[in-house]
Simulated assay, not measured.
Amino acid sequence: MRKKSVGIVGSQMDLGAVRKGVDMGPLAIRHSGLIQKIRENGYEVKDYGDILPMVATDEGNSNMRYEKEINEANNRLFEQVIKIHESGAFPIILGGDHSIAAASVSATAQHYGDIGVIWVDAHGDFNDDKITPSGNIHGMPLSAVCGCGPDSIVSFTGARVDPHKIAIVGARDLDPEEVKKLKKNGVNVFSISDIHHFGIRKIIETAIEVTSDGTKGIHLSFDMDALDPGNAPGVGTPVMNGLSNREGFTICEILSDTDRLLAIDMVETNPLLDSRNATGVLAAELILTCIGKTDYQLFGI
Rank of each mutant, 00 (worst) to 15 (best):
I100E: 09
L174P: 10
D213P: 12
A226K: 01
V6C: 11
A278T: 05
K202V: 11
K46D: 11
K37T: 06
G60R: 10
G33C: 01
E86T: 10
I166W: 12
A226W: 08
P233D: 05
G199A: 02
Y296K: 05
I82R: 14
A167F: 02
C148V: 10
V18L: 13
N74S: 12
E69G: 02
G42F: 01
R76G: 11
N241C: 15
V267A: 07
N245L: 14
E69P: 12
E209I: 13
S62N: 15
E268L: 02
D125T: 12
I70T: 09
I84F: 06
R160A: 07
T289K: 00
E253H: 03
Q297C: 12
D151I: 15
W119M: 09
T279N: 00
E40W: 15
I168D: 07
F190W: 01
I118E: 07
P163K: 07
I208F: 04
D274Q: 07
I92C: 03
L220G: 03
A171S: 08
A73Y: 08
K216C: 13
I251G: 03
H219T: 00
S106Q: 13
A101R: 14
I35P: 12
N185M: 08
L243R: 06
D128N: 05
L94K: 12
I82M: 11
D125G: 08
A28W: 02
C148E: 13
L94R: 08
D223V: 06
G96M: 04
A109L: 11
N277W: 07
E177W: 07
L220P: 04
D129I: 12
Y112T: 13
L262P: 10
I92N: 00
K3H: 13
E253P: 03
P176D: 00
E79M: 14
G147M: 00
K202H: 11
D151K: 08
G7P: 03
E178C: 00
T269N: 09
E178F: 02
R19T: 13
V145A: 04
